[in-house]
Amino acid sequence: MFKRLMMVALLVIAPLSAATAADQTNPYKLMDEAAQKTFDRLKNEQPQIRANPDYLRTIVDQELLPYVQVKYAGALVLGQYYKSATPAQREAYFAAFREYLKQAYGQALAMYHGQTYQIAPEQPLGDKTIVPIRVTIIDPNGRPPVRLDFQWRKNSQTGNWQAYDMIAEGVSMITTKQNEWGTLLRTKGIDGLTAQLKSISQQKITLEEKK
């Protein structure tokens, strides 16, 4: 169930391209415009997507990853294993993690069937560096609404905000991946996880038929 919630949630996290980005210092504006741009692209490019579902990787690479804190999220997933990894191991892992996100997020976007969304009203940021933004996803086919909290983090150097995690039903996506990959990290280390991520990233994206 959580895996499905995570995939549905990713439908609204794909941010804007650099040329049309919203105010990078306001995570609420980023979330709002990102959702609108993403849904528009999914709707307008269905012919290309249906002809070649792996085209979704391109959308992810162009529109999402430049505005997601990939390395920060990847380091959180590694936890204690990050500090013990060599620079070469980290570089290989982050490259594999990025390719994994292209496949995983692309597969999530393949679930698009006309969903709509509501974003919580903007709250004062103050001096906060981590801000959760509640998004409610509404399914046109009558499924119950899904309420999610996207975690946005302020870059201490640039002042810009980027998304790095999502919490559904009190469970963090980062925590879920830590639990899912924990045994592999304990037995085969970061190299074993890197190899698995490379394998997963090679899987073809498949479209979910409308139910």
Rank of each mutant, 00 (worst) to 15 (best):
L125T: 07
A51H: 07
T206S: 07
E209W: 12
Q202R: 06
Y117F: 11
L125M: 14
I167T: 04
K188G: 10
L197D: 07
Q24F: 01
A22Y: 01
R50M: 02
I174P: 15
A195E: 02
N160H: 13
R90F: 12
P140W: 02
H113Y: 12
A96P: 03
T187W: 13
I138R: 00
Y112M: 14
Q89K: 11
L78E: 15
L65A: 06
A108C: 14
D165S: 14
E208M: 15
F39A: 00
T194Q: 09
L125F: 05
L109R: 10
S156I: 03
G170K: 04
R153L: 06
L197I: 12
V135M: 08
A96H: 07
N26H: 05
K210F: 15
T58I: 15
P66W: 04
Q69D: 00
Q36K: 15
G79H: 05
G114A: 12
G74R: 07
A22W: 08
E209Q: 13
I167Q: 00
Q62H: 14
A95V: 01
T175D: 13
L10W: 09
P121E: 07
T38Y: 11
I13G: 07
Q118I: 06
G74V: 04
A95W: 12
P27L: 06
Q62E: 02
Q178L: 15
L42W: 00
A96R: 03
Y105N: 01
M6C: 02
Y112F: 03
V131K: 09
G126D: 06
R147A: 10
R134N: 01
Q151Y: 05
I174N: 03
L207N: 15
F97K: 15
P15G: 10
T129G: 08
Y93Q: 14
Q157N: 09
D191Y: 12
G126V: 07
M173S: 10
A92I: 15
I200G: 11
P132G: 11
L101M: 15
A104E: 03
P140C: 12
G106T: 09
F39P: 04
L10R: 07
A34S: 08
I130P: 04
K29P: 08
Q178Y: 00
L64F: 14
G106M: 03
Q80F: 14
Q178K: 12
V171L: 05
I59L: 02
M31A: 02
P144M: 13
Y112R: 06
L5A: 01
D61N: 12
K128W: 08
E91Q: 01
L64C: 03
T25D: 11
Q107G: 06
Y93C: 11
Q103Y: 02
E122T: 02
T175K: 13
Q123G: 05
N160E: 09
A95Y: 03
V171N: 10
N141A: 11
M111P: 04
I49Y: 13
G126M: 15
E180I: 05
F94L: 07
F97A: 02
D23L: 02
E209T: 05
V12K: 14
P47A: 08
G182W: 11
Q123C: 12
D40E: 14
A34E: 15
A85Y: 15
R186G: 13
Q46C: 11
M31N: 07
K211H: 08
Q80G: 14
K128R: 03
Q118H: 11
I167W: 01
N179G: 14
K154V: 08
F2Y: 00
S84Q: 10
A96E: 05
T129I: 10
A22M: 14
K43F: 13
E122W: 10
T25C: 03
M111S: 09
E63F: 03
K210A: 14
A104V: 06
T175S: 06
Q62S: 04
D32V: 03
L16T: 07
A35V: 09
G74A: 08
T194L: 08
Q118D: 00
I133H: 06
A85M: 02
I205N: 15
P66E: 14
T175Y: 13
E209G: 10
Y117A: 13
E122F: 13
Q203G: 10
L101E: 00
N52M: 05
K188R: 11
Y93F: 00
T194Y: 00
G189Q: 03
L207V: 13
R147M: 07
S84F: 05
V146D: 04
K3E: 14
A22I: 00
D165G: 13
I137V: 01
P144R: 03
T86I: 09
Y164E: 13
N155L: 03
H113M: 10
L184Q: 12
A18D: 12
L11G: 08
A92N: 02
S156C: 15
S172F: 02
L184Y: 08
R57H: 03
A14C: 01
E180K: 09
K211W: 11
E91C: 05
L65C: 12
Y28A: 07
I205G: 10
Q24W: 03
G182Y: 15
E33Y: 03
T116N: 10
E180M: 02
Y100E: 04
R134G: 07
I13A: 00
V135C: 15
A88R: 01
Y100H: 08
S17T: 05
I137D: 00
G159V: 02
G159C: 12
T129D: 06
M7S: 01
I59P: 05
R186I: 00
V77S: 06
M31L: 02
L125I: 08
V146Y: 10
E63L: 09
T20R: 03
Q202I: 13
K210N: 11
R186C: 14
Q107N: 15
W161Q: 13
L5Q: 09
K188F: 05
D139I: 13
V146M: 14
T86Y: 08
G189M: 11
P144N: 13
S156T: 06
V12R: 08
T176P: 06
D40K: 01
A34W: 12
E45K: 06
Q157E: 10
T187I: 09
T206A: 09
Q202W: 14
R153T: 15
P124S: 07
K29H: 01
K83M: 02
M111R: 06
T136W: 07
E169I: 09
T176D: 14
K3N: 01
P15R: 09
M173T: 08
T158N: 00
I59D: 09
T86D: 09
M7L: 02
L125K: 15
L78N: 04
A34Q: 15
G79N: 15
Y28K: 04
V60I: 05
D165R: 10
R57N: 00
S199A: 09
A22K: 14
N44M: 06
P124R: 09
V8R: 04
Y112A: 14
P27N: 10
A9K: 00
D165H: 14
Q89F: 15
A73W: 11
L30C: 04
R41Q: 06
E45V: 03
E208T: 13
V70M: 11
T176R: 06
N26A: 03
T58A: 07
I137L: 12
R50V: 11
K102E: 15
Q62C: 08
S199L: 10
V12L: 03
T158F: 14
R147L: 09
I190R: 12
